[in-house]
Design a protein around this nucleic acid. Structure first.
Lengths: 216, 216
DNA sequence: TCATGATGCGAGTGATCACTCGCATTTTCT
DNA sequence: AGAAAATGCGAGTGATCACTCGCATCATGA
């Protein structure tokens, strides 16, 4: 049972061998978390799964929480790299395309490793609050805010801050819900269409010219 | 640590005194869960908080999980009663009003006891999956499905099943996000407006007559 | 080569926790 | 009243788990 709750790394791995140990531990933690869930993922099991002793585990991670936190960080970093890569390119494109990019990137981000994602989302809030995982949403939110600011003139919303919050929350929730409860939808192009439509219609987008792509 | 994982009640409380004990246990469980979180909410603490002995606790609940599950059921039942009461009346009203009702009832449902709700959502999935809490969403989903079916002619969506999923997911997520991250928005009438707008615009609603309430 | 530090090991430690059991108290019957 | 049933009690039990410590093994540079 937890004594303190340190979350920072204990020792820097410098040699090649030790970096491999750390790597094995992180990978094993992810595997065991997926297979057993947080509660049943004991540090002994994780060490065993990594082919490493408990002692070594505690040489690099001061606590179980720290270990899990490291896995979480890594996962979030993966997702963030997806988000950033795609969204920076979307800023200068018209809404229908930009919205589609947002939707796609959210789906892609959630598809990084869905099972791990699920465990992290469902069981790990206890470790550090949802804050960490929320960073993906935060990132998307800030980029969306920028986008809306730049395109305010062609949109029919007043409060851009709220609009950004609403757009990101909806898109995030829809991808999230799809991953968890309707996995079949993820490959479905019409799902992307619909989510995109939510955004476009909510924002009251009007095509600048005779562009017949949207009904409504 | 858990041995089996029974989730059903152990003994029916018949006398007045024992019903009070059960009641005290449920109330105390909710309190302790909120105060300590699932992990630190030990059965001994709960019993103490209820002014009852551990032995008595196990006379009515075969496991910690069963106890928490009972609290969860009760909470969901509260939320559901909110949802059902309001939504059955909304079926015969035009979209702008019905959508507003949906939004309001979701906010109301989440406001039943937000702190407990948060714990239940964030920490309890492990107990029975999210399935239980999701029942609120399921209920709203099925009622929304019915509504959309009845009003299909005045809407601009094709796949009603998907539309219902999208509408409920968005509204649920927005209220949920507001409860967790933007509590200030909950009292804000313009938040209700915006969420309602998401629904109305997505569904491509056109007022049957000269009704100037909506832009877009 | 060998000395020094880095890395690895895993049995053991102390703490916690879910849960049981034998007995005490209260309530409900006759 | 008094027997029987229901309810309540809480110290104790066995299990688990996060984490430590003393020692072994390996890599390095001189």
């Amino acid at each position: 049972m937890p004594r303190a709750a340190a979350t920072k790394a204990r020792k820097q791995a410098t040699q090649e061998r030790s970096r491999a140990t750390v790597e094995a531990l992180l990978a094993a933690t992810a595997r065991v978390l997926v297979r057993e869930g947080y509660d049943r993922a004991s540090t002994n099991k994780i060490a065993a799964a990594a082919g490493v002793s408990v002692g070594s585990l505690y040489q690099y991670f001061p606590s179980k929480e720290a270990l899990v936190a490291a896995v979480q960080d890594r996962h979030v970093e993966h997702m963030l790299s997806e988000v950033r890569a795609t969204m920076t390119q979307a800023v200068h494109r018209p809404l229908p395309e930009a919205a589609r990019e947002l939707v796609r990137v959210m789906i892609a981000a959630h598809a990084v490793s869905p099972k791990l994602h699920r465990v992290l989302v469902e069981q790990i809030p206890r470790v550090r609050g949802l804050a960490q995982i929320e960073r993906v949403g935060e990132e998307a939110l800030s980029m969306t805010r920028v986008y809306l600011g730049a395109h305010a003139s062609s949109l029919a919303v007043e409060d851009l801050e709220m609009a950004a919050f609403i757009v990101v929350t909806c898109v995030e929730a829809l991808t999230h819900a799809a991953v968890l409860y309707r996995p079949a939808l993820l490959g479905d192009e019409s799902f992307v269409d619909e989510v995109t439509a939510v955004v476009i219609r909510y924002l009251g987008y009007r095509a600048p010219e005779g562009d017949a792509r949207e009904r409504t």
